[in-house]
């Protein structure tokens, strides 16, 4: 069984994000980029399935600018077998990504699509669900445990009320949550080996997908700075302020 793992290049989680001076977006010039942390978890899970003998091949795929190759190389260094880059300079919306991934899935015919529940840049949390709908495959989102049992998939999901266990038919789309696993380090020998693994480059046109954005970004700005708090002398004063000033009770 092939496992297809879509991954995204985002601003490194440790970087303090700054808005561009012209408010057209966030500053990306000379900013450190990395693989989206949820995508790392998806790659780790796929590589573990391969090591357990359940998966036969792990393919990482990314859509975006040429530098997304670096993110794919990270996936290869973690243990994926090959990579596909869908190269475009057009800013991609979740539906466009889902259509591109559907086209790749139609071609590769994986048994499982494993991906991060969301990317830490847009926090959209849409792509997995959209691919599932486009492919007509069963889906499990926010997975904290994934076990394959023949052609069935047992997934534990993190939901508001606790944990939910569901069984799915394969092929399936699974979006992974933070607690599924702890991604491995890319060891230096594996980083060097990743250089020799195949990386195929495609374009949206090759896949017959129109990725023209449908949403126009008008302005991006910093959230308002948090104001300093005030000290109150008594519980009565606190209640009064909450009731009459903050109007929350």
């Amino acid at each position: 069984m092939k496992v297809l793992v879509p991954i995204k290049r985002v601003i490194d989680a440790n970087v303090k994000v700054r808005v561009k001076a012209d408010e057209s977006g966030v500053e990306l010039t000379n900013v450190k980029m990395a693989m989206n942390p949820f995508c790392e978890i998806a790659v780790e899970e796929a590589v573990r399935l391969k090591e357990a003998g359940t998966a036969s091949e792990v393919i990482v795929v990314s859509a975006g600018i040429a530098q997304s190759q670096e993110t794919l190389r990270t996936g290869l260094a973690m243990g994926a077998d090959r990579a596909i880059l869908i190269q475009t300079d057009v800013p991609l919306e979740p539906l466009a990504v889902a259509k591109l991934l559907k086209a790749v899935a139609d071609k590769e015919e994986p048994g499982l699509l494993l991906l991060g529940k969301q990317a830490i840049d847009g926090d959209n949390n849409q792509t997995a669900q959209m691919i599932s709908a486009l492919l007509g495959w069963s889906q499990a989102t926010f997975a904290s445990k994934v076990a394959i049992d023949g052609d069935k998939l047992n997934v534990t999901r993190e939901v508001d009320g606790g944990l939910e266990n569901i069984n799915l038919n394969m092929p399936a789309v699974v979006s992974v949550d933070l607690r599924l696993n702890e991604p491995r380090y890319a060891s230096l020998p594996n980083i060097m080996k990743a250089k020799k693994k195949p990386l195929e480059s495609l374009t949206p046109e090759d896949l017959g997908v129109d990725v023209t954005p449908r949403v126009e970004t008008v302005k991006v700005c910093e959230p308002p700075a948090r104001k300093a708090g005030v000290k109150v002398a008594s519980v009565a004063e606190l209640v009064d302020k909450l009731k009459n000033e903050a109007k929350v009770i």
Binding site: A34, E70, R73, Y185
Partner: peptide
């Protein structure tokens, strides 16, 4: 790119 990836692993 390999050097940068090495750098990332060491930082982590």
């Amino acid at each position: 790119a390999e050097h940068e990836l090495l750098r990332d692993q060491i930082r982590r």
